[in-house]
């Protein structure tokens, strides 16, 4: 097997501001993304999924830092790399798509110019070449009338078109890894469908890998090949989408599946997860899900359970992972 494109090992992220004892938001997170893979990171608000993604792109907010662990891209360690050389990777190697394109686009620069900037800077294109590239990328992302639209300012475009502009911008330098932070959450359902299709197609064409953060399991099911489920700063389950969603071994993954309505099974009652996620500052010792877990045993409250392999390529951080599978079958 070849080396993965991105390898995250024991990553911890925390707030360091104002105290000698940092508050950990993401703890001991490890995963690999290989070339062309579409990797989903699923979790609720506060699970640390967005910060994990931002750490890869070196886009952590002020006061939040990588405290430990490593992020290796194509064999190169990114943690501790000087900011200037790291910035050189963003664009030609790694690109990012945000939830709200309006905040990521420059409001006073025409969108065509914004797309052209990357190819000009990183691929050494001339002005004319880079504008042609921008229009080509806009056409590729399904923007009607790209020549005219290239002269528009971001505020003149609809939400769906702006998101396409962001995608065109991100893909303009042929990156090998595309980071997506809830790219369709702000969009309408028909437009979300179009954008997800587009992302899949473009990644298939260019062979780029996708790291896709979302709270919606159905979106992951449609878009990704592999996934990791995060809860309270930890990865609690990971594996292929097919494996994890059909045979969830962590009670949280199971709870997420049971609590969300499934369009294809309207008669199924929704089973909410009781309680709510712990506050980051006062996380309980042991498994963070223990206070809400229906399968909790005494040992859960003492130490964070290690990730165990329950099937080839399928891991769950639960000491009862085997029993949970049996109980699922029994239901």
């Amino acid at each position: 097997m070849t080396d993965p494109l991105l390898s995250v090992r024991s990553l911890s992220i925390g707030v360091t501001r104002g105290s000698t004892d940092p508050t950990l938001i993401v703890e001991d997170v490890s995963f690999d993304i290989s070339k062309g893979e579409r990797f989903g990171i699923v979790g609720e608000s506060g699970s640390g999924k967005s910060l994990t993604l931002r750490a890869i792109g070196d886009l952590l907010p002020r006061g939040v830092e990588v405290l430990a662990g490593s992020i290796r891209y194509n064999g190169t360690e990114l943690v501790g790399m000087p900011r200037s050389s790291r910035r050189k990777l963003m664009g030609p190697e790694i690109a990012m798509i945000f939830q709200e394109p309006m905040t990521a686009l420059n409001p006073v620069v025409r969108v065509g110019e914004q797309i052209a900037e990357g190819p000009r800077r990183y691929l050494g294109m001339t002005r004319a070449e880079s504008m042609a590239r921008a229009i080509e990328m806009m056409a590729k992302t399904g923007i009607p009338d790209p020549v005219r639209r290239a002269r528009a300012y971001p505020h003149e475009l609809s939400g769906g078109l702006r998101q396409r502009i962001m995608i065109a911008m991100a893909l303009s330098c042929d990156p090998r890894l595309l980071l997506c932070d809830e790219p369709t959450t702000a969009l309408d359902v028909t437009v979300q469908h179009q954008v997800l299709r587009l992302l899949e197609d473009l990644c298939d064409d260019s062979g780029a890998a996708l790291a896709f953060v979302t709270h919606d399991l159905a979106v992951v099911n449609q878009t990704c090949t592999d996934l990791a489920v995060m809860y309270s700063g930890h990865i609690v389950e990971s594996g292929t989408v097919r494996e994890v969603l059909s045979d969830p071994r962590h009670p949280y993954t199971q709870g997420l599946l049971d609590s969300a309505p499934d369009f294809d099974r309207p008669e199924r009652p929704l089973i909410p997860i009781p309680g709510f996620p712990p506050n980051v500052a006062s996380r309980p010792s042991g498994c963070p899900f223990a206070p809400r877990c229906p399968f909790v045993v005494e040992a859960c409250r003492t130490a964070m359970p290690p990730m165990v392999t329950v099937a080839p390529g399928h891991g769950a951080a639960c000491i009862e992972a085997d029993r949970i599978s049996r109980e699922l079958v029994a239901r």
């Binding site: 909410p272 009781p274 309680g275 709510f276 206070p291 809400r292």
Partner: peptide
Amino acid sequence: AELLNARLQ
């Protein structure tokens, strides 16, 4: 049981 749990929370 769930209700009790939710209330404790």
